[in-house]
Amino acid sequence: MILECKDLTKTYHGFPALSDISLQIDEGHIIGLLGPNGSGKTTLIKLIAGLLSPSSGTISIEGNPVGPASKSLISYLPDHFYLDGHRKVKDIIGFFHDFYRDFEPLRAYDMLGKLNIDPNQKLKTFSKGTKEKVHLILAMSRRAKLYLLDEPIAGVDPAARDYILQTILSNYDENASILISTHLISDIENILDQVVFLHKGRIHTHACVDELRQETHKSIDDLFREVFKC
């Protein structure tokens, strides 16, 4: 089991961002973490990544509690830029290679090359869309056990979205799992095989995508709209 959350709760000054989250994720899945804004998706991801500490409950990644061991197994892509723009891309690659044993620089250079991104340039010289792609490439160049992608396709043009989804698919590893949080469901639902619906900090549904489609005769996008109708 790659990820196990038991009765995970996170409260901010009495406000429960997440309540009693119990979740198990096995190897080889691409899972969509879906929910409206404020449902706790980013909070859950940050808890797993080790950027927040739970108010109660446990998290274990391949049996490890959150710490340096779990962080070496997790490749995390936040929903905003987090790399120093003043650094050159190749220096950032060197940095990742230094700290993460499972980082594969050749893969990164290969993906950058296909997009004609010059690794000798500083990150800040690139357009927003290109920066997004660089961030994604770095995250996907690791042979991690768990990939946490927080809104990887929001704020990006449709062609770039396709590229991002293709990259996620082409780097798929049956020994790893990918957890993608998003609210752009129709773009992404075909690459998911499981979904978790998060509503007001609680898990509403955790199911296989095709089973849901069979039961409800709806797309996940339609189902989402129905469940989270305002």
């Binding site: 962080k71 070496s72 936040p78 700290f99």
Partner: peptide
């Protein structure tokens, strides 16, 4: 700040 997202997810204590 932003860079904290990188530093705190490195496999270090």
């Amino acid at each position: 700040t932003q860079e904290g997202y990188l530093m705190h997810t490195l496999p270090v204590t």
